[in-house]
Design a binder for these strands. Structure first.
Lengths: 157, 157
DNA sequence: TTCTTGGTTCTGCAATAACAGAACTAAAGA
DNA sequence: TCTTTAGTTCTGTTATTGCAGAACCAAGAA
């Protein structure tokens, strides 16, 4: 008996499209498609075999992709009483945090650029000025973006 | 005669550090190190062979990395009268734009998520609500972040 | 005309990534 | 006890990436 779930042509196309986007954001092809499936499928909680058979990927690819995404907190799973299977779903609640993290990533650049400026010879005045301007842009964004998140959260309540 | 430029131990270490960061941001190892060199070297305008010999990379790697970064507008070059060589330097002025672009990248996610929400079954109410909340966060950020850039620019004048 | 300079392009290799398929395993039924 | 379920882990293959080294090339210089 097949565990394939019903999926329309349109949904499949959208999954492919999402796959491309998620690949660009760093997921493997298989993981990207799983994310896509969990986003567009009518049933948002799917088992290992439903995912595997619907997307036609191997057990190993499914297992590795799922565990990778669990460890990244991109997906999560629930269980049901008297059922050994896990039901996987995207962890949308965490998406906001992962966007925050993405922004924080640029903070890494900010730190090292400060180090560069400190170590640079003082003789290249124009260059150093441009660099310090760039750094202060980051400083500004770093201060303001968290405020933006807070402001948005405030509008939700 | 060697074209190697003088570089301190400290500068070399910083170049490696920058290399790691730039690799994470999508550059190849060679390109990442060239960016690093152009950022920390006392002389900010270096020739093909100065780059190549200082970093000990092959001609082909140097050529490919430079052309890739030229096409990405991450570096630029100047020439000097009666000198066939090109002098490469990082295009710091463009960095601001590339940060803007980075933020715009997330706009891609925003568009496709709207498409997902439209195609979704209406029956998964909780899920759809979370999704639409996520989308509106993006809408908010997309509106507010350009304003942030403008506000920062205003403080510079 | 040949040589030198400042690169570019081609060929081949080594490392890594992503996956399939098959063997394996731990827990729960039967 | 044996079997099924729900995966995990191992082995091997294929595709891709990043690079070195060498051949190549176009524009002056000699």
């Amino acid at each position: 008996m097949s565990n394939k779930i019903k999926i329309t042509e349109e949904q499949l196309k959208l999954i492919e499209k999402l796959g491309v986007v998620f690949e660009k954001l760093g997921l493997t092809p298989a993981a990207a498609r799983i994310e896509g499936l969990l986003l567009v499928a009518d049933n948002t909680e799917l088992t290992f075999d439903e995912i595997r058979e619907t997307l036609n990927i191997s057990k190993s690819a499914t297992s590795n992709a799922i565990n990778m995404m669990l460890s990244m907190d991109r997906i999560e799973y629930i269980t049901k009483p008297g059922d050994r299977k896990r039901y996987f779903r995207t962890h949308i609640a965490n998406w906001k945090d992962s966007v925050k993290e993405k922004f924080a990533e640029t903070g890494m650049l900010h730190e090292i650029m400060k180090e560069v400026l400190q170590q640079r010879t003082a003789s290249t005045k124009e260059f150093n000025k441009s660099l310090s301007e760039f750094i202060s842009l980051f400083e500004y964004l770093r201060k303001e973006i968290p405020l933006l998140f807070k402001k948005w959260e405030a509008t939700r309540k």
